[in-house]
Design a binder for these strands. Structure first.
Ligand SMILES: [Mn+2]
Ligand SMILES: [Mn+2]
Ligand SMILES: [Zn+2]
Ligand SMILES: [Zn+2]
Lengths: 152, 152
DNA sequence: TTTTAAATTAGATTTATTATTATTAAAAAA
DNA sequence: TTTTTTAATAATAATAAATCTAATTTAAAA
């Protein structure tokens, strides 16, 4: 059995990233490949600035605007999503499978939470309970709390 | 039977608002009374600017900083909460009973959603399912979708 | 009434993000 | 391959929400 950790942490090559961009009808540029690569690498919901700092090391002339433009494009195409935070700084998230988020506001940490059982429960609930005058498209749990390392 | 609508829409007097402020150990000022009053009146999750526009009509010399300061104080004391939105503008919410939110991103509309049955389901789920290394404090559903007036 | 700690104000400042536009480069067409 | 077209990027300016600063005012305790 392969550990989940190892499976998720497969680092795609630039080639593979480029293919992903074309699959979504996007022009391949070194900037886009690097930004998407950084979004994959910095897997814990980086800000635009986090991504800029990472990518500018490889592409020294990089403009901040390009990072914002590219992230916008990725969000538009459904490759990434944007998370609004209580500090007013946006964070970005690769969309692989839908998942919920755990927020620790003391250290701005955001982690994924996924449990098919929970989704089943929510699906059941919302299929039964109709909301008057509202068509739900996406149901996300925001769990605010505290990460406690050393505590199971 | 009194309609839920009518019960909720009772507009408190400045006197009542002032009492609420003192109960939370806050100094009573005309600015604070008016800001909290506006937060109650503009019941659909106003922004700081929405509140400023409302209150400056009554207190012409009002400073924007006072609105931000007051809202911060209300959030700190647990009277109000702050909602981060996808546009980067914060919205404010009077805390009466805990509830979830319906977001329509096409028109920035945010509405409350409350169903004790749902909370019971979530409570059950999280009491059974422990999240490793994370202590949850607040569980909120963010339902993104579209309000459809004229559609039930 | 006097005192004092806290609140308010005006304005400057910060900072994430967006807009503008000239330049450059990707990839389609010839 | 070369040309052409279209879109992306870079540099920089602009925007706007929110925060900070410091002088002034005020609420309420003494
Ligand atoms: Mn949220
Ligand atoms: Mn901003
Ligand atoms: Zn995520
Ligand atoms: Zn609400």
């Amino acid at each position: 059995m392969v550990l989940k950790q190892q499976m998720e942490n497969h680092i795609p090559t630039n080639q593979e990233i480029a293919i992903k961009l074309s699959r979504y009808g996007l022009k391949i540029t070194p900037q886009r490949v690097a930004v998407l690569g950084a979004l994959i690498k910095l897997c814990h919901h980086p800000s635009a600035e986090d991504i800029f700092r990472e990518v500018v090391q490889v592409i020294p002339g990089l403009s901040q605007a390009t990072v914002y433009n590219t992230l916008d494009v990725l969000v538009q195409r459904g490759i990434a999503s944007k998370i609004a935070t209580s500090t007013g700084v946006m964070r970005y998230d690769l969309i692989e499978q839908p998942h919920h988020h755990l927020f620790d506001e003391t250290n701005s940490r955001i982690e994924d939470y996924y449990d098919p059982e929970l989704d089943q429960i929510l699906k059941m609930y919302f299929s039964k309970k109709k909301i008057k005058g509202f068509v739900p498209l996406e149901i996300k749990l925001h769990v605010i709390g505290a990460f406690r390392d050393n505590v199971v």
